[in-house]
Amino acid sequence: MSALLSIRGLTAGYGGPPIIEDVSFDVAANEIAVILGPNGAGKSTVLKTIFALTKVLSGAIDFEGTDIASRKTSALVTLGMSAVPQSRNVFRNLTVDENLDVGTYAAPPADKTATREKILELFPDLRAKLRQPAGELSGGQRQMVAIGRAMMCEPKLILLDEPTAGLSPAYLERIFDLLLDIRKTGVTILMVEQNARQALQIADHGHVLVNGRNFASGTGKELLADEDVRRSFLGGTPE
């Protein structure tokens, strides 16, 4: 498997001291990769840096073999990347349908109607809400709109920042199931997740960060079985 996204020695921050230092990992095509770690480990910063929302101080980010470290966010969308922020991830005053439509503006898909239909098949709950302002939906439904919006440009890679944050356990499972469905459509997923144990169960690979640096990497199974990782981040014994 060739790497779709390759990060080498990435150091980045928001102007002050770097938040992440010398972070390296690969994301293979069509896998679900998860970034784990305690609060303040720099997990979200990694996603923001990949998506050109923070400054790269040093290191390289390769997407399909192209160095994208100095590209703008809009250019990354055109290259086939999209992202869902953790909070404020929908346009609240726009309808669900308009939210989905906005997702196509930066990189229009070949057949917008077909793409929209494909997304509504993945998220059938949204079909009845298309004309409703996204701000009126529940947290879980909003998350679906946000992921749907990010998928409207038919990305190769989608970056998700804590897609299950603040959701009820029932929705949490649904979102994880949906991520598996999304992967089946050929999309690669790189996400940050607090619900580490559940995330590792669906992930192909996990990358643990501590204090902005690589701590451990491995397959989901390996990390779930790893004594250090389990003791520090997962709590309890393996299931």
Partner: peptide, 16 residues
């Protein structure tokens, strides 16, 4: 309207 609603999300969505 999207930019007016949330400029940061508009940037994340790649809007000009």
């Amino acid at each position: 309207r999207a930019v007016s609603d949330d400029p940061e999300l508009a940037e994340v969505s790649g809007l000009d």
